[in-house]
Design a protein around this nucleic acid. Structure first.
Lengths: 314, 314
DNA sequence: TTATTTGAACAATTTAAATTTATGGAGACT
DNA sequence: AGTCTCCATAAATTTAAATTGTTCAAATAA
């Protein structure tokens, strides 16, 4: 109801006249006819109940009220230009924020590399990485706090239906032993051998632990018979424990690349046992996808995706 | 040429939706229908090539780009409101500037009182007083540097036609003597007595001086025979000179009110001689008249105008 | 001076844009 | 499921703005 007493077009015209000192020249610059300019200024004067220009002589000269209005006019138009520029920057990825979610594993070992690559190409987009449980990450994606996320665990069914879940990569969980362990010399272990090992595991709440337990059970192992030396809540801590000879563990291969090449840890093969989990990309299809998110999904993720991932076929 | 990518109305709608969290509620508040709101936002999104709202759920939620735009939006709309307020203040005389011109005499003795009265009623209007020669004042009024002026001299003819000249008041130029002067005792002087006096006058360039000379000449006096003791360029200086007994002078009565009542100066009457000049109000009819100027002319000036002035009949 | 030019105002017509009415579809609440 | 709310869409109407053509006044030039 509180009608605005002027339009941006009118302000633009006002500015042009003030700059040119003439209605006609302003009209030429704005690519309209002179009467259009006259009318708009007349409307402006009528609505504000002021006289803006002295049109007596050859030049149009601002009145006091006109000068006052012009000041605001310039400020307003400047703000408009700035707003446009900001929006353009956002569109061309020269600004904005990308919020990525990840589980402990991917957040620690995969994301830093991806984000590095992204920031190299778009240094003006700030990226935020949120490492949380699969469950919490799922909810954050659902309500828009996170643009996209990669998870390794299973989503609650309600979220599963709400979100777009795309298979992204296979994360192998390798059995690792201290490099000086007696069994480290064997080329291939048997499942039975596992019962002889002392395990250092993640705590039983963690998604990764649950996944490992399930896969071992599925392959016919009795996980109750496995000896658990200790439970830790950090992969790094487990790695250190294994390297110190405290026991064996199932760890994501991405997390032990460096230790393997340094030879400080041993990766064992177990016959007829593959402990693998699917990493999945989750997004919220019912929400706006930012340009940054779009680009990340299209150009960054595929470079790290496994060959079978749908993301490869873009 | 560079078309604006949005209108103030669109920004207003954007703000309302953001505040209400709903297209419909925003429409209600703005007293338009819901489709009008939807269409405008769609136009905005199309023109800026961004998505502004996530319309999935029950609430309309801003996207990142939307939040960015909203920031600017609020700033712009605030500036608009401020501009309106400033203009309103100007209209209601809660702001603005009034520039008044005056000659030495009126500027010194009359204007301060008038301006005081004006400022008492409209303390928010700043008033500027410019004391200049009649000629220069006339030109300033002509080209709009001065809103209105009161002059005592004769304008050049070209200006006379260009400007509106209204008789304002009669300024009597009284013959004043040192109070101890021998002739100060006489009830009435004769014109002949003037030749016996030593005069302290304004310098010959001043308008007041010219007016006095002309009037004396018109009344049959030979101004060559008048003895001029000295020429000063300030009325105050002349007053002091007269009080010190250095000579006589013709001074505007308005400038010696205080001295007369204090008895430090003597006002003499000369038979068959009236030295009076017309003070005139000049304005520029072809220029915009500010509200302040209007009010000053209408309500302040008449209180000091002589009975015959047209200003009285308002 | 008169003639010519230039800039702004005015009126009527055309063109464009925004709003409304009416309707359909998707999600949320009972 | 059924209903309700909210937003999108389409066609029609209303409203506003731009253009064309013309007049008028002031400034410039002959």
């Amino acid at each position: 109801m509180p009608e605005l007493p002027f339009t941006l077009d009118q302000l633009r015209i006002l500015k042009a006249i003030a700059a040119q000192g003439s209605f006609k020249k302003a009209a030429d610059i704005l690519y309209v006819t002179q009467p259009a300019v006259s009318l708009q200024i007349q409307n402006l004067e009528k609505q504000l109940e002021i006289t803006i220009f002295d049109r007596g002589g050859r030049k149009a000269i601002l009145t006091e009220a006109g000068r006052l209005l012009l000041e605001y006019c310039e400020r307003i138009l400047n703000q408009c230009d700035e707003a446009c520029k900001a929006i353009e920057d956002l569109n061309s990825l020269k600004g904005g924020t990308l919020v990525i979610g990840a589980s402990q594993t991917t957040g620690t070992y995969l994301m830093p590399r991806m984000i590095g690559l992204f920031r190299q190409k778009y240094p003006d987009v700030s990226v935020q990485l949120q490492v949380h449980s699969t469950r919490r990450t799922g909810w954050s994606v659902a309500n828009g706090q996170i643009d996209l996320a990669i998870i390794g665990g299973q989503l609650p069914v309600d979220l599963e239906n709400l979100l777009q879940v795309i298979p992204y990569a296979t994360d192998e969980l390798a059995l690792v032993l201290p490099s000086k362990h007696p069994l480290a010399t064997k080329k291939e272990l048997l499942k039975e051998d596992l019962y002889k090992l002392n395990f250092v595991t993640l705590d039983s709440q963690s998604t990764t632990r649950k996944v490992v337990d399930k896969l071992l059970r599925d392959s016919g192992l009795d996980i109750q018979r496995l000896k658990i030396e200790m439970e830790l809540n950090s992969l790094e801590a487990i790695k250190n424990a294994v390297q110190s000879g405290l026991g064996a563990s199932f760890l994501p291969v991405v997390s032990i690349e460096r230790e393997l090449s340094a030879g400080t840890i041993h990766k064992a093969f177990v016959a007829d046992l593959e402990v693998k989990r699917e990493l999945k990309l989750i997004t919220n299809p019912s929400r706006y996808t930012s340009r940054a998110s779009e680009v990340f999904k299209k150009y960054i993720l595929p470079q790290f995706a496994s060959l079978e991932s749908p993301l490869r076929n873009i």
